[in-house]
Simulated assay, not measured.
Amino acid sequence: MPRPPRRRSYDQYCAAARALDAVGDRWTLLIVRELLAGPRRYTDLHADLPGVSTDVLASRLKDMERDGLALRRRLPAPLSVFVYELTERGAALLPVLAALAEWGASELAGPRPTDAVRAHWFAVPLRRCLEAAGAAGVVEVRLPEGVFHMGVGGAAAPSGPVGGSSGAAVAGTAYGDGPVPGPGPVVRLELDADTCLAVSRGSLTLQDGVREGRIKASGEGALANALRGACGG
């Protein structure tokens, strides 16, 4: 069955233009950011995308389904709810978002009075710094604004109940909202948003953050040891 025609296009034979045909609309990349945490219900997406209207969100999700970036499916009983999740092509946008976050970090001098804040919005820029530890594992990050977790070094972030079985790894999941579900070795980092932003920018190392008392690191296993090494023991 042929795919419905695109609503608009730059009509340029250029890879960048083709990419923007698919993800250049307002909100699309931020929806990708949310779905990098794994399958999400429509209501969850709307709650974590403050400012988007229900009509625009529904339209963007349909566009993403049409363009092969996301799909909609019903979870098995007992949940039996519909969720949206990224396809492999959609999940491949992670490095694009990471590059955008790195490029835009200089604009985050401080939150504006109208700015919404979600803890897991720090996950994409922070992930690059944690990958530098060189070991695989799961990291739980605790901020005053909330908690998120992510897999680093090739480890997938375990999903919560909405993503299927609690603690199961979801392919393509870059991070998860909330504490790590289920048992298993985990490294916990406690810091505030300013420190998290400074580490993401590269203006503060993990080592200096721990030395100055701005970061508390705890946990067991190879990743914990690697991070402690990065943090000066």
Rank of each mutant, 00 (worst) to 15 (best):
P183D: 13
G51E: 11
G184Q: 10
Q12G: 00
S106Y: 06
V83D: 04
A17F: 06
L69W: 08
A70C: 13
P179H: 05
G146M: 02
V180H: 00
G182D: 09
R201E: 14
A22I: 11
G137E: 01
G104C: 09
L126G: 03
Y175E: 02
L227D: 00
P78C: 10
L71M: 13
G110M: 11
D115S: 12
P78V: 04
P144W: 08
A58R: 13
L100C: 10
S200K: 08
R60E: 14
G151F: 02
E140N: 03
R201Q: 15
P125M: 09
W121T: 05
L86Q: 05
G182K: 07
P113R: 06
P111K: 05
V117F: 12
V81T: 13
R211E: 12
R201Y: 06
L57R: 07
D177H: 06
D44Y: 05
A174Q: 08
T43H: 11
S166P: 08
A222P: 08
G146T: 07
V124E: 07
G178W: 04
A136F: 05
E88H: 08
G229F: 04
D63S: 12
C231Q: 10
S106P: 00
S218V: 13
A171I: 03
A58E: 12
A16Q: 15
G184V: 10
G164D: 09
C14E: 14
G167F: 04
L69I: 06
A217I: 15
R66H: 07
S218F: 04
L189F: 09
R118M: 08
L93W: 10
R60Y: 09
A132H: 12
E212Q: 15
E34C: 12
A99Y: 01
R142F: 03
M64I: 06
L30M: 07
R214L: 15
A123L: 09
S200Q: 06
G154S: 09
D11W: 11
V139D: 00
A168S: 15
F82Y: 14
V23C: 09
V147C: 11
L93C: 01
L100G: 03
G209L: 07
L49A: 07
A98Q: 15
D67L: 14
R66Y: 02
R73M: 10
V138I: 15
V152E: 03
A58V: 01
R72E: 12
A101M: 06
A101H: 14
A77W: 10
G134V: 12
S80E: 15
Y13E: 15
E131K: 07
L126E: 03
I31S: 02
V186M: 06
F82I: 00
A19V: 08
D208Y: 02
R72F: 00
V52N: 03
R40C: 11
A22W: 04
L223G: 00
E34S: 11
V139S: 03
E131I: 09
G232R: 10
A91D: 09
W27M: 07
A58I: 01
R7E: 14
L94D: 02
G154N: 05
L227K: 00
R74F: 10
V138K: 02
L35W: 02
Y10H: 15
L36C: 06
L108T: 03
V147D: 05
P144R: 07
A217F: 01
A116L: 02
L143D: 05
L93T: 05
V162H: 05
V117R: 14
D63M: 10
A174F: 01
G163N: 07
P95H: 07
A132T: 14
A171T: 13
V187A: 11
A47I: 02
P50H: 10
R127A: 14
